[in-house]
């Protein structure tokens, strides 16, 4: 009888150990997109004429925002927040690559995107491609955008979420436009510490 109890206790201990291997799901201020149906890979051109894919950033966290440079408000705000996030990440800043994907490739020339990113942070990368590949890439991120005629020209409606991809190229977080820089930093730090992958 005594022996049996001992065995039971041993089994319980093992079970506890097994449960510890997968960490509990961390809490985020943003959307936890871990395991979601996203295809974060891309093939886009940089201002230097180089073609970039997500694999080029393996080993880094990548924060992606879709926008356009004629945007008066949301896009510069999202990029300013990205500057703040990198500043507040301190020593971890170099682990985060910020990428801006144009949903208005007609007006966003490679040179313009290059200048625009430099105005925020020279490490930010502004990428573009042809309209068809733009649509496919946005679709893979579940990003919506639409061209809307406005007065003499046109403007763009678009999803205003910054996506965070982990160093293995997996989609992990959706940081809404309403989150503060501090809330984003908190999420990214949590993600960097978390071993939870699904």
């Amino acid at each position: 009888m005594k022996r049996r109890l001992f065995l039971l206790a041993g089994t319980a201990g093992l079970l506890t150990l097994a449960a510890c291997e997968q960490e509990p799901k961390p809490h985020y201020n943003g959307l936890d997109l871990t395991g979601g149906d996203y295809k974060p890979d891309f093939k886009l051109s940089g201002p230097d004429g180089r073609v970039y894919t997500l694999a080029d950033f393996k080993g880094k966290y990548v924060m992606v925002f879709f926008g356009f440079t004629q945007c008066p408000d949301v896009c510069p705000t999202a990029l300013s927040r990205a500057v703040e996030i990198r500043q507040k990440l301190g020593l971890d800043a170099d682990k985060l690559q910020v990428i801006f994907i144009s949903i208005d490739p007609e007006r966003d020339t490679p040179a313009l995107l290059g200048e625009y990113m430099r105005a925020f942070d020279p490490s930010f990368l502004g990428l573009r491609t042809d309209p068809q590949n733009t649509a496919q890439t946005a679709f893979n991120y579940k990003v919506f955008y639409r061209r809307v005629p406005s007065g003499s020209s046109y403007t763009m409606d678009h999803t205003a979420i910054s996506y965070v991809i982990d160093p293995e190229g997996r989609m992990r977080l959706g940081l809404k436009h309403t989150l503060t820089g501090d809330e984003c930093v908190q999420d990214i730090k949590t993600l960097m510490k978390s071993k939870y992958t699904l």
Binding site: D73, V74, S150, D157, T159, A160, I161, H177
Partner: peptide, 14 residues
């Protein structure tokens, strides 16, 4: 213009 964000979608209208 007026900007609004609905369902994480940024809209701008004259």
């Amino acid at each position: 213009h007026e900007m609004s964000t609905v369902d994480n979608m940024m809209r701008m209208r004259q």
